[in-house]
């Protein structure tokens, strides 16, 4: 089995780097999938490969990497980011202090010319500027060199070339002003220093804004208890939760968080599970009940046995899933990375063409200066930072936002697709209804009494795992009916069950099963029909090949289902009910909640085919189910939504897991998806517009007509602004509120 390795990557400065790092990782033997997240500066690698090999490969490509192991990395990562943030600010300050006075005095015309004494002054400034380039801008130059060696180019390449050209050109003028015409004698030291100041400042601000996007994970990690009280050799002791072993006994006192998943073995309590299930009312739990890590014990003190620890707890799995989803890339993001990978080399070509165009077609004394300045400006303005950040940053915020609403999104593709659905298929039991059916009425024939029929039926059904079967067993228990011995039990998938009781064959199931076995149920038909119209599910009972009666089970509709389905209609979705239940019951439920299309009497194994047939009509289909018998259909659908109450982790089979068990979450998930995709598109549009206007402007296309030329410093500021705008726009998603009517 392949495993996922998470690495933190440093030295990635721009979108182009993502492609280089991914390439470096994929070239390692055993790697199946590599996903580099530029916004988070991490890589998730799947495959049979050691972390050391990956780190070596990444280092060879000119970047640095370290393995991330779990929740505890988060604080380390934060400290490292804080230090980096301060370093960037210091670098920005130093270059600003050198650049700003030069800029101001230069504008005021108070700087000397290039005569003998002036040149000495300029030489000093040139040396000061090279200190700026080394201290504040050194990382751009080393980054550019490293990626150039690997046949890649990125933001560093552009900045290094831009500022390097500015410095070199200025130094040439200082050394020998006679080389260029008098009009063109202008030093660009201040431009180099200020560009570096602005870009460093931009990165620092961007980092700060980025930190806010990972709050969802921090909040989830905050749910984990730090210590647990275990009982070892009869003595209670507090230990770190990492040290808790499987099957150890733990004590939980009132008000404490439960440390790991387990089963209560002594005592009882009410437990606040709202963080997992969204259910605000505390749940009563007693011996034999399951408790989940991260939930809060409200009242009593109890003992429980640890059943899932460390990475296996429900909470850890949720954290892992959100983390993986946040760093995953949707189709749109992969496309952008490809574009960014060829973008920078293309810009290099454009800059050379710009230079040649000025040299060949420019007129006047200043041609050389203009050629150099425009080339420099093209290099500076064309950074694809905004392009690289556009997708991952929005995905991070979107996935995190969804997690806050109890919606766990598996990956970026699911997030991108959810907003494009046009049909939603809903399973009935457990999705539209509570999924806790109970016996509502019974009809008996011949000499059977209700209690006797219930006794026989419950005895047979105790072997079945179907929710309807369970309701019959519970009804018998409620009436204190003792169960009989059953032989040769077998389940007929989607139809019913059969066995032998007291030497007589007994059969419980739907109409089709009775017809198949040639059992006459005409005496029960009228009653069955009337019950199905009330959205009840009648199950026929036959003993000794003769109809004995029917047991009718009703499953209450969730209070918010109707409202949620109305909201689905409001956003233009077609809603289809897909159930194994009989046509009349399904119709009755559909009528009650306002569903337009019903596909009933579908066997579990055929549900996926029904999904496929809707897809064949060209519809993009979302399937909502409770994740157990619906698993194939969930997998077949374009987006599978599993309604799970957290404990039964249906997380594995679906693209999106709805922890809150409400259909409203489906609409919320779709709304978040739409908002995120819209946000990504805005970001990409912004980045695209910025570059398509910025580059020609920088190249000086407006100069011959209107005399407008972009100052390289303005280009530096614009570049910093473009990334900052993307990050701020993505942060806007954090204010998103999907549900209006809760």
């Amino acid at each position: 089995m392949s495993t996922a390795t998470r690495l933190s990557i440093s030295g990635m400065s721009c979108a182009g780097c993502v492609a280089s790092v991914e390439q470096a990782i994929v070239s390692v033997d055993g790697v199946l999938i590599a996903n580099v997240n530029f916004a988070e500066h991490t890589a998730t690698v799947e495959g049979e490969v050691s972390a050391e090999k990956l780190v070596d490969a990444i280092r060879a490509a000119g970047y640095d990497a370290a393995q991330l192991t779990g929740a505890e990395d988060e604080s380390e990562k934060e400290a490292a980011e804080m230090a980096h943030y301060r370093r960037l600010l210091k670098k920005a300050a130093f270059s600003g202090i050198v650049g700003a006075p030069l800029f101001i005095f230069g504008m005021a015309g108070m700087l000397p010319g290039f005569d003998a004494s002036g040149r000495l002054f300029w030489l000093g400034i040139g040396l000061l500027t090279i200190m700026v380039l080394v201290y504040s801008g050194g990382h751009f130059f080393t980054g550019a060199w490293k990626s150039a060696k690997n046949h890649n180019a990125n933001m560093d390449t552009l900045i290094a070339l831009g500022t390097g050209t500015a410095w070199l050109y200025s130094m040439v003028i200082v050394a020998n002003p006679a080389l260029v015409p008098a009009m063109a004698q202008h030093a660009y030291f201040e431009a180099a220093a200020i560009i570096i100041a602005l870009i460093n400042l931009g990165s620092a601000l961007e980092m700060r804004a980025r930190g806010k996007t990972s709050e969802a994970i921090k909040r989830l990690i905050g749910l984990q208890a730090k210590t647990a009280r275990v009982i070892r050799d009869g003595v209670e002791q507090d230990i770190a939760i990492e040290e808790v072993g499987l099957d150890e006994t733990l004590r939980v006192r009132p008000g404490e968080r439960i440390a790991v998943d387990g089963i209560i073995i002594d005592g009882h309590s009410s437990i606040d599970e709202s963080m997992i299930s969204g259910e605000p009312i505390p749940v009563q739990k007693a011996v034999g009940d399951e408790v989940i890590a991260g939930t809060i014990n409200k009242m009593g003190s109890f003992l429980f046995q640890a059943k899932r620890i460390g990475k296996d707890t429900v909470l850890s799995q949720i954290i892992e899933m959100v983390r993986t989803a946040q760093s995953s890339k949707p189709a749109i993001g992969r496309l952008v990375d490809k574009v960014a990978g060829v973008f920078v080399p293309s810009v290099l070509i454009v800059s050379v063409l710009t230079f040649l165009a000025w040299i060949n077609f420019g007129t006047g004394d200043q041609v050389t200066t203009l050629a150099i300045v425009t080339t420099m400006t093209v290099l500076i303005i064309a950074c694809p930072c905004a392009l690289g950040l556009a997708t991952p940053i929005s995905i991070m915020v979107g996935v995190g936002k969804a997690a806050e609403f109890g919606i766990l999104i598996r990956n970026g593709d699911a997030l991108q697709l959810a907003g494009k659905l046009d049909t939603v298929i809903l399973d009935k039991t457990g999705t539209i209804t509570e999924g806790r059916p109970s016996v509502a009425s019974m009809v008996v024939l011949d000499n059977w009494s209700e209690d006797q029929l219930l006794q026989w039926s419950a005895s047979l059904e105790q072997g079945s795992e179907h929710p309807l079967a369970e309701s019959i067993v519970i009804a018998a228990k409620d009436k204190n009916i003792s169960l009989l011995k059953v032989a040769q039990f077998s389940a007929i998938a989607g139809h019913g069950v059969e066995a032998i009781i007291e030497d007589k064959p007994i059969l419980i199931g739907n109409r089709k099963l009775m017809h198949d076995r040639n059992i006459d149920i005409s005496a029960l038909e009228d009653a069955a029909h009337a019950l199905t119209l009330q959205a009840q599910t009648p199950m026929f009972v036959a003993v000794d090949d003769k109809a004995a009666g029917l047991i009718s089970v009703a499953d209450a509709i969730k209070p918010d289902s109707m409202d949620a389905i109305q909201r689905m209609h409001d956003i233009g979705l077609k809603v289809v009910l897909l159930t194994g239940d009989n046509q009349e019951t399904a119709n009755a439920v559909a009528r009650q909640v306002g569903i337009d299309e019903v596909i009933a009497e579908v066997l579990p194994q055929d549900k996926a085919d029904k999904v496929a047939s809707l897809q064949a009509r060209g519809e993009r289909v979302g399937m909502v189910g409770d994740g157990i018998n619906d698993a194939p259909a969930l997998a077949r659908a374009d987006v599978g939504f599993a309604i799970g109450s957290g404990t039964d982790v249906a997380i594995e089979s679906a693209d999106i897991t709805l922890m809150r068990g409400s259909l409203n979450s489906v609409v919320d998930a779709i709304a978040i998806s739409k908002a995120t995709v819209r946000n990504i598109k805005q970001n990409l549009f912004g980045a695209f517009i910025y570059n398509s206007f910025g580059i020609p402007l920088a190249a000086g296309v407006l100069y011959p007509l209107m005399g407008i030329l972009l100052n390289p410093m303005i280009a530096g500021a614009a570049m910093a602004m473009s990334s900052l705008t993307v990050v701020s726009n993505a942060n806007r998603l954090r204010l998103f509120k999907p549900t209006e009517n809760k």
């Binding site: 890649n152 060829v342 063409l353 040299i359």
Partner: peptide
Amino acid sequence: MMQTLIINLAGVALIAFIVWWFWVFKSDKG
């Protein structure tokens, strides 16, 4: 005139180098 010609030739050579380094040579490497 001569100077412009040299600059142009150098520019074209530079473009050719960029194309070779970032595309041709890179895909040769695999």
